[in-house]
Design a protein around this nucleic acid. Structure first.
Lengths: 337, 337
DNA sequence: ATGAAAGCGCTAACAC
DNA sequence: GTGTTAGCGCTTTCAT
């Protein structure tokens, strides 16, 4: 039905290869014929068939995005939509398409990865969550398939990744708390299986130690990535010993903490969230949180992968292999009590 | 590098067409050769090249998903991720891939649609938001391209769509409020450019009228799709005349309303959200909300489109052209005061 | 039931 | 600079 390269060739009185050359913006083509071909394209409303190009080029210009295998709440976390938007923005800029699939568990995740790769649908893969023992990373590394992971993997050797400096971010937050006179600071994090949890926990511990405050293991809780987790964690901690501040690894957790605090009438406890989600300003008290710039993370992840893909031929010499996105502490009422 | 259909053919001592037939599960193939071919596939670790198949079949088995052209807050609304998940689930079940793109405005949205269509990347398109005057719908309808829209379009003629019965849902909520003795009920909705806003507003009005309560236009506000909008709207309404209840068209708006109510110390005002987002239970008071089952909406949208695509040949006689997903009122503290 | 051959729409040597 | 030709990996008549 729609015009092909041959139709254009005929209409412009040139050969198909010439048309192909103007599509690819080949240098050695006379302005005159180029003009004629372009005109023929317009006239016939011609658009290159991407499938045919992909087959001939052995490249689809599309990326496969793997959404995390996890429970509902985590996926509802705005982090993912923001990262997806960032990915989409850079991809669009470079003319790449994005496919996504949502998996329920790691086995399924690997299955989808294989499907993407074997079917030749994608040129590269973006992993949207790095766990401590991530089989997807292992698999992709082994077969030397181009991929990037959002979140620092356990072993960064020869893998592209982008993340915040989670250690530093939490370190800074806790240090600033200490400098203002807080000493009894508790920590509630998500599951330990996530690297990000451990990084932030480490930052918390080191900040305390750096100021000569002993780490109290009873002040450290990791649980679900949910308000429920924060709520229950905070109750447990308050029961143990009322702290002056509670730092968390996610706003969702912090929301739960705020609720528990209110119920226990311990309103002087400072609370800090992470990820600066859009509802943080609308808590009462409004929640201080660390903005991790999720959109930028997604953007840089796409950039790392696509740039890597495009530069395949020119030796992969000094290409950066990871990118650290800045965080920013957003102070609100929950730390100004 | 990887095995092609020819390699398999050679290994199994048959012709490529025979291999192709077993891939497509063609009936006229002897069990014996089928077995031999399958064995060869395993041995060579053969996987069909989807691009080549697509080119020959003129069908990619992939769908293009258009994320709404709108401000940040709206996209952060969990509705979209839930719908995306539903879409993904049905698509995966039927072996379809999903591509998404995020657009900033309607012009860009149409541009992406054209790109998807012209490049032949997708077999159909899913629109993730129906506005009153939706140019995308107009465009797709005109060129008779297969698509489905999430949300009831203004003109439903010859378009596939899935939605809640937003009129009925709001009608029921308001009626139940009236039956419990509430009379001064205000309404705060999102932008009027969204059909869903009008449907819910209509349900609100009719419910009042049905019980002989006059509609007070000062009790009706539409604004941004955000907490900010709810917050400011509620303040305005309270200033005008303190209502007994405020119904909203979105939890985000309701969150803002709750905040305004607290600040004004008007805690007896009942509040109802919409979409039953995951944070609704974590407000204080916990927020009563209408669960719209977004995942189901996405699932049914994908189903409608894919089933339509697959049945192209067999006359399109009695195929359903839309689907209504049930809503459910989830009562919490905010309506039990 | 199976094979031969043409074709899907585009690209990339290789010639001139 | 431009045309010719041979694929890319698969499907599908049309034979047999």
């Amino acid at each position: 039905m729609s015009a092909t390269i041959k139709d254009v060739a005929k209409a412009a009185n040139v050969s198909p290869s010439t048309v192909s050359r103007v599509i690819a913006d080949h240098p050695k083509i006379s302005d005159e014929t180029k003009k004629r071909v372009l005109a023929a394209m317009k006239k016939l409303n011609y658009h290159p068939n991407a499938i045919a190009r992909s087959l001939a080029n052995k490249s689809t210009k599309t990326l496969g995005l793997l959404l995390p295998n996890t429970d509902e709440d985590l996926f509802n976390n705005p982090f993912f939509t923001q990262a997806m938007r960032g990915i989409s923005i850079y991809a669009q800029k470079k003319g790449y398409y994005i496919m996504y699939s949502y998996s329920n568990n790691e086995a399924q995740e690997i299955e989808f990865i294989k499907r993407y790769i074997h079917s030749k649908w994608v040129d590269g893969i973006i992993l949207l969550s790095a766990k401590q023992e991530d089989q997807c990373i292992e698999y992709l590394k082994n077969i030397h398939y181009p991929f990037v992971v959002v979140g620092r993997p356990k072993d960064t050797h020869s893998v592209l990744w982008v993340d915040n400096d989670n250690f530093q971010a939490m370190y800074n937050v806790v240090t600033s708390l200490i400098e203002r006179g807080y000493r009894d600071i508790a920590f509630i994090g998500g599951p330990q299986s996530f690297i990000v949890t451990n990084d932030r926990l480490e930052g918390y511990k080191r900040a305390l130690q750096g100021r000569g405050i002993e780490v109290d293991e009873n002040y450290i809780l990791t649980s679900e990535f949910s308000e429920q987790g924060g709520y229950e964690g905070a109750k447990k901690i308050i029961e143990y010993k009322v702290p002056e501040a509670i730092v968390t690894t996610d706003d969702l957790i912090a929301f739960g903490v705020l609720k528990a605090i209110k119920e226990n009438d311990k309103q002087k406890i400072a609370v800090i969230g992470f990820n600066n989600t859009f509802l943080a300003p609308y808590q009462s008290p409004s929640l201080s949180s660390v903005d991790i710039n999720a959109e930028q993370i997604g953007y840089q992840a796409a950039k790392l992968l696509i740039d890597h893909l495009e530069d395949k031929e020119e030796e992969e010499h000094n290409k950066p292999t990871h990118y650290i996105v800045d965080t920013k502490f957003i102070e609100r009422e929950s730390t100004k009590l």
